[in-house]
């Protein structure tokens, strides 16, 4: 069974995100970059499924050569090989999905595993778009994945409960927070990762039109909520809730 897992280089979720002075984007100097946490869960899931079913785990990133660091992290966790589609320009989800489609057509995986969303742009689009381009089924926001007899059964985190869907293979699945807890890379894993194959593909060689359909034209800090008042005790709090805020 072959798994293709996408890995995006993003700002650390613990980093304080600040706007540049000219508001053209966010400050990335000195900000730690990590593998998108939901992608890390997807890598972990692929490794566990491989332990069960055998096969291969291929990790894929789109970005500048800086993304090699995140691909190496995935290799250190245990992925078998990596592909980097080199691109320094801006992409929207439509462009990302088209690039992924090209790689999927070449690699022919049984399952594409992705994080449910990247924690930078929070778009939550590319996986579903990829599934549609391929004409495949999808299981988004996966909580549990069972692969059996040419099908994947996915328990999904849905509004108000858990939904189960069944997809024939191949399919696209996205990882939600509680799918698993990713392993730490071992020291031998990190050593081995340095020698694992990492192919680089130039975006221009894929012959795609990735002209932006969606462009971020402005960044701002959301209106800060006015910090309110401290109250000394319960009686004051209840009084203010009743008379001032009229909330009770």
């Amino acid at each position: 069974m072959k798994f293709l897992v996408t890995v995006k280089r993003v700002t650390d979720y613990e980093a304080k995100i600040k706007l540049k002075a000219d508001k053209s984007g966010i400050v990335t100097d000195g900000v730690n970059m990590i593998m998108n946490p939901f992608d890390e869960i997807a890598v972990e899931e692929a490794l566990r499924q491989k332990e069960k079913h055998g096969g291969e785990v291929v990790v894929l990133s789109i970005g500048s050569s800086d993304s090699v660091a995140q691909l190496r992290s995935a290799l250190a966790m245990g992925a078998d090989r990596a592909i980097l589609v080199k691109n320094d320009g801006e992409l929207d989800a439509n462009g990302v999905a088209k690039i992924l489609q090209k790689i999927v057509e070449k690699e022919a995986p049984d399952v594409v595993l992705m994080g449910k969303q990247a924690i930078d742009d929070d778009n939550n689009q590319a996986a579903q778009m990829l599934a549609e381009l391929l004409g495949w089924g999808q299981g988004t926001f996966a909580n549990t994945i069972t692969i059996d007899g040419g099908n994947a059964t996915i328990v999904r985190e849905a509004d108000g409960g858990l939904e189960t869907v069944k997809c024939s293979l191949p399919c696209v699945i996205t990882a939600d927070l509680r799918l698993n807890e990713p392993r730490y890379a071992s020291l031998p894993g990190i050593m081995k990762a340095k020698k694992k194959p990492l192919d680089e593909v130039e975006l221009s060689s894929l012959g795609l039109n990735t002209t932006l359909k969606v462009k971020v034209v402005g960044y701002e800090e959301p209106a800060a909520k006015q910090a309110g008042q401290k109250v000394p005790d319960v009686a004051t709090l209840v009084h203010k809730l009743k008379t001032e805020a009229k909330a009770i």
Partner: peptide, 8 residues
């Protein structure tokens, strides 16, 4: 974007 830290 960025978990609500930035409005795009």
């Amino acid at each position: 974007m960025w978990a609500g830290n930035i409005t795009g």
